[in-house]
């Protein structure tokens, strides 16, 4: 089969843009699951919540969805801190088996989704913004702004988090909490407080990811489920706890998915992420770049 060159290039570019967006979706999980070892499978549900908040404010007041999400950051941060507090007191502190922690987040995911269905129904919702619609064109390459803007915002968010985690005291403490709780106590930092902040930050990213999501595609409450596979596939692909690995994993998955839907049809796309996840778990559980 002769593959048209321009189709190939466009699929690649679309995949990279998608990948950058996936990185924003996944970075929250990278922090909670990869660094804190909290399997927050409800994260995609909170992302959808972020989408709906952007949707409400956008349709009522006409505010730009990305701006809405930035205003919502502290609210999601607080919400994350509360969720962590409940998680900590109910499971981590009691040393309860991880079974219940998983069930807790699964329940949260489900409750978020069903609550959104009850309030908004199952219709697809979308936002209005000047960059939804137009495209930049470079030769044969199409750059829809609807994808480009989220990709740029995602990369900015990603870079900011990476700088925070490697350059600030708090960030380093968060990276350290995974390795050595005792060492942290020695420098008089409370692991619980650090983990709470880290979890709250991971939750805050959901506000931005949600706004980006509803810019890229119309959203209905169960869309979050598709992202569960993606975020964990990316996380595992890039190696648990590695923030740069997350970006690479996200780009790879974006490109693989883009090629799959270009050449085989979009109905196969959902299985790609999970297929990748199963393969990685089976053969390279430490991730592609792991030891």
């Amino acid at each position: 089969m002769e593959i048209p060159y321009d189709l190939l290039i466009n699929a690649l570019v679309a995949g990279l843009l998608l990948g950058a967006f996936y990185a924003a979706v996944t970075v929250g999980i990278s922090i909670s699951f990869g660094i804190l070892d909290i399997v927050n499978i409800a994260h995609p549900g909170f992302i959808i919540l972020g989408s709906y908040i952007a949707y409400i404010v956008n349709t009522r007041l006409g505010v730009d969805p990305i701006l809405v999400s930035i205003v919502m950051l502290p609210v999601f941060y607080m919400f994350g801190a509360i969720v962590y507090q409940v998680y900590y007191h109910s499971f981590e502190k009691r040393g309860e088996d991880p079974l219940r922690g998983l069930a807790f987040f699964f329940g949260l995911l489900f409750v978020t989704e069903v609550a959104l269905v009850i309030v908004f129904g199952v219709d697809y919702r979308y936002v209005q913004a000047p960059y939804i619609g137009p495209s930049l064109k470079f030769g044969m390459v199409d750059l829809p702004l609807r994808m480009l803007v989220p990709a740029v915002v995602a990369l900015v968010l990603f870079l900011a988090l990476q700088l925070f985690l490697t350059r600030t005291f708090m960030g380093r403490a968060i990276m350290g909490v995974a390795q050595d709780q005792l060492a942290l106590r020695l420098v008089a930092a409370s692991p619980t407080r650090i983990k709470r902040s880290a979890f709250a930050i991971s939750m805050a990213t959901a506000a931005v990811a949600g706004a980006l999501l509803i810019i890229i595609q119309p959203v209905e409450p169960s869309v979050g489920r598709e992202y569960i596979g993606r975020v964990f596939a990316i996380c595992v692909l890039g190696g648990l706890g590695s923030i740069p690995g997350t970006l690479v994993g996200a780009m790879m998955l974006g490109v693989i998915e883009s090629f799959t839907s270009t050449f085989y049809g979009p109905s196969w796309a959902p299985a790609v992420a999970f297929g990748v996840l199963l393969l990685v778990l089976a053969f390279r559980p430490a991730g592609l770049f792991g030891r």
């Binding site: 699951f33 499978i41 998983l102 595992v236 959902p270 199963l278 778990l281 559980p285």
Partner: peptide
């Protein structure tokens, strides 16, 4: 595939299985 890994991976793997089978 997944039980040799940590428990969380098994849980995530089962989630993946559901989507893969549904797509098939």
């Amino acid at each position: 595939l997944t039980l040799r890994l940590r428990g969380a991976f098994f849980a995530i793997g089962t989630l993946a299985l559901a989507v893969v089978l549904q797509t098939l």
